[in-house]
Nucleic acid binder design. Sequence first.
DNA 1: TATGAATGAGGCTTCATTCAT
DNA 2: AATGAATGAAGCCTCATTCAT
Lengths: 210, 210, 210, 210
Amino acid sequence: MTDLEKATRRVHEFRQREREILDVALTLFLDQGEDRVTVEMIADKVGIGKGTIYKHFETKNEIYVLLMLRYEEELADIFERIQESDDKETLAREYFRFRISDPKRYQLFDRLEQKVIKEHAVPELIEKLHRIRDANFVHLRRIIEARIEEGNLEDVPPIYHICTAWALAHGAAALMESPFYQRLIEDKDDFVDFLIDIGIRMGNRGQRGK
Amino acid sequence: MTDLEKATRRVHEFRQREREILDVALTLFLDQGEDRVTVEMIADKVGIGKGTIYKHFETKNEIYVLLMLRYEEELADIFERIQESDDKETLAREYFRFRISDPKRYQLFDRLEQKVIKEHAVPELIEKLHRIRDANFVHLRRIIEARIEEGNLEDVPPIYHICTAWALAHGAAALMESPFYQRLIEDKDDFVDFLIDIGIRMGNRGQRGK
Amino acid sequence: MTDLEKATRRVHEFRQREREILDVALTLFLDQGEDRVTVEMIADKVGIGKGTIYKHFETKNEIYVLLMLRYEEELADIFERIQESDDKETLAREYFRFRISDPKRYQLFDRLEQKVIKEHAVPELIEKLHRIRDANFVHLRRIIEARIEEGNLEDVPPIYHICTAWALAHGAAALMESPFYQRLIEDKDDFVDFLIDIGIRMGNRGQRGK
Amino acid sequence: MTDLEKATRRVHEFRQREREILDVALTLFLDQGEDRVTVEMIADKVGIGKGTIYKHFETKNEIYVLLMLRYEEELADIFERIQESDDKETLAREYFRFRISDPKRYQLFDRLEQKVIKEHAVPELIEKLHRIRDANFVHLRRIIEARIEEGNLEDVPPIYHICTAWALAHGAAALMESPFYQRLIEDKDDFVDFLIDIGIRMGNRGQRGK
DNA sequence: TATGAATGAGGCTTCATTCAT
DNA sequence: AATGAATGAAGCCTCATTCAT
């Protein structure tokens, strides 16, 4: 094996470990709440020393943001893959399903973002996060605009439709987790179908009062 | 002044101070985030000693929940006042407006509830909180049922409509706060009208695909 | 009723309340440990205000010492009553029985005395406590001396016999409370008889190695 | 130096520091009373940070119990070393001397055990403490049984003799510390000899009233 | 005289981060 | 590069005592 190969492999292993740390951190955060999870717990579960974590990430806040970035990139992938699809509804449906499917994770990220922003921590990463979201937005906006042009969606600024969808998805994620509301819904699958249906049609033309 | 009057006044002043503490706490929590606000900061701003806070509330968690209770009781008042109204839509509209009007507060409470529940703290108060919510629910449900009977709303379990509305309101509250989405909406009032309109009609009969 | 009578009665009620406070304090201390019992708890159980306690006693430490004084005075009463008795052994036996009979109380006082002395609190009361003990000592010493003269007890300084008896009684009190040792003794009454017997005879002449 | 050696040395140093902390804690507890000694004071005297203490011990209570464990293990060592000795009295004499020799320490532990048990803290360590005591007991019991068989000790359950000895030793330890009794004994050594002698013979056959 | 709200010093504990090895 | 012992700021909470009414 050449030195180059060795170096390459080392870099690869380093990245691999990074991913592993993030995976473990996410699991623990979801399980116990980010406040109860210490850096040491993460290190222990990965099987490395606490100091090693700090070779990969500057602060705990950085871990938070990197997890959010991963999430947003997954979302970007979905957009990418579906882009070409002719089905005008699939995108919206996928978007909702992805966002609602793992509400705990989404809620976690929501909390984390608020916390990190409040502390003005890792501003460059936050910047990057917002850039990716912007990009994802562009995709959404294009779809919306097309559907408005076709006369399917009410002709308001596209951002209105997007934000409304975002709000419903966000609220739905919270709903799923709420122990209070949870116990009042018997057939969860049926309800989710109902909700998604509403989400998809709620901005349709002719749906609001004339 | 009789002894009784004195005692009554003292009780009144005690309650007054309690309210004052809660007001200050809420302001600080909204302003700086509950984690950054220490009990001492609250005491300082009220102009009392740290220990005095603990004459009124057992723990910081109790302050959290009492704030949430106040919120939910305000909501109950709204329901009470509107109850008799004939206007089938007013209730829903008021509900949305109240919930969306102060999103920061709502988000705060959402975070607090999750935190308190995770720590299994002050379970009796949490219990009480949920009881009040249950009561508020009953009002909502009655309206929904009436509108379904009139044939205005799609005939699914009323809870579906309620939860969907809850989700949209919750998501809307979050949306308003999101620094990211915020900067993309120019005419906020117009958008809120759009959103509330959607909220009110989204479960209307005949709106979903046949 | 004359003013004098009124005043007398008031004084009497005041003393009565004082006794009541001490009774309640003792009960609570024995039950929950002096550290866990707050002045407020005592006031609540007596049914008076916290401030009232401080009309009767300067500090919590004073309550401690007054309880110890009561104990030592009870002991003095025993000595008084038995004084005239001819039975040379009764006194010693009574002494042991009294001391051992309520080990929890004795242990409490032991702890309290150490605490108060360590803090150099209420030195006059501590002084008084020691004076009463001295007086009780005199009684004990007289008996011991008489028995030595009769040739029943080994002829060492009387204080030796007294201290040894004190030590055994003290240790016995601790023993009774020890959860560890407690479970190893089946017939407690039988053991106490054995112990008292040993206590009474342990300094008898001719019992030590020649 | 190999990595293994390094690791070994590091472990050794860690244990060493642990011992150091316990030593300092004991000194301070004996000197000023456990309640007046804060964790910070211990850290300061050892010359380390407050947080470091918590790398070694979970709570202040754990420090308490570990000190007690050390004491009980020293006792076990004494038993171990003397085990083979033929001298039937040496064990008892050693036991008494050890227990009485450092009364302040013994009293401290007694207080600590009561406190820790009352708070239901570190139950596993308390469990372990009791196990060691049980083991020490077995040694004592064997000796006692042998002496009963030889006809030297009164034939009552061996536990009676043990508990009586325990009580006397415990009481003697308290006695030595009592500022009150202390000033009445002039020749302390002579008295201790007397006491130990009594301790050793007090259960001898034929000593109780026929 | 009785009250009880107010006080604030002081204790224990947590944990993100640093740095010498 | 990896480690993990050390750090110390910071937070929550307790409670004996005071004092104005």
